[in-house]
Amino acid sequence: MRNVWIRQHVAALRALLVLTALTGVLYPLLVTGVAQALFPGQANGSLVEKDGKVVGSSLIGQPFTDAGGNPIRKYFQPRPSKAGDGYDPASSGASNLGPEDVVDTPARKSLLTQVCERSRAVGELEGVSGARPYCTPDGVGAVLKVFPAVGTPARAVSVNQVCPARPFVAAYQGVEVECARPGEDYAAGRTVPVRGDAKAVVPPDAVTASGSGLDPHISVAYAELQAPRVARERGLPLAEVRALIDRHTTGRSLGFMGEPVVNVLELNLTLDRG
């Protein structure tokens, strides 16, 4: 029995060593060698240099902000990121908040309010309307809590507008709308998002983060929205900036998947090179 036990363990050890050599050494070396031979740029991180210094990767987005976190006006801005403090490859991921996340809490703002705030900020930066459906004029989610939850409304609260804010709508089904009182629990009420009649000028990718939080691209629509500001700040003809957008636009994957996109880092570096 002991000899059998020894033979089994020796065989297991041999299998471990062979598989470790194959999958842990030989296969990675083979893949790395093929990648370095055929796609050296991509294999080394698709790094982008400026004046001989690495300034980023064409595969990972990065902010173009000043020390205070404010957008630098002469640069195209990327889409928002929820990866760590923003575009952190070690914390890649999304907020995991969905379309039903519309009510703010003391601990955090809802996804809807985050979108509304971003839209308002982009509108102010670009000199356009930041209004969009389900958002109040002051940039929070346009959401009511109605009481009772079932039946004829007797009370309505603009739950994301804390007093003394003025509710975005005066009345709901004949009931005066109140501002939200700090510390009051509105969980028992029926949640009623109010669409309103606003039409969004700011594109969706300007107000929502990607699933990875690392997306280096923006939509052509978002790039076009920013073009007048960038042209004005740099003293360039608008037509020239739009031509650069076209040059840095990548078409749909395989010709039919997704939408055309613009690489923000590469576009900004081209602008810096003049």
Rank of each mutant, 00 (worst) to 15 (best):
V54E: 00
Y134W: 12
S158R: 13
L29A: 14
V146C: 01
V194T: 05
P204R: 11
A142H: 08
K50L: 13
T113K: 06
A67N: 05
G127E: 03
D88A: 14
T270P: 01
V103N: 02
A94E: 03
V207K: 05
N96D: 09
G84H: 09
D185L: 12
G98F: 12
D104S: 12
D101L: 11
T191R: 03
L244E: 05
H248M: 13
P193M: 10
V18L: 05
G130Q: 03
Q8W: 11
G45P: 13
Q161R: 09
E176T: 15
L59C: 02
L59P: 00
Q36K: 14
V18S: 00
Y75D: 02
V230Q: 00
G24A: 12
G196D: 02
R108V: 14
P89K: 01
P260T: 15
R234L: 15
G235S: 02
E233R: 07
P28N: 05
I218A: 01
T270C: 03
Q161H: 08
R166Q: 14
V262M: 06
E178D: 08
L111Y: 08
L26N: 01
R155A: 09
V54I: 13
V25C: 02
Q8F: 12
A142L: 11
C135W: 04
P153V: 12
P99C: 04
Y75N: 07
V103C: 02
V194Y: 01
G33L: 10
N44W: 00
E126W: 05
P78H: 07
G24D: 04
P203Q: 05
V194A: 03
V202T: 09
Q62S: 09
G127D: 01
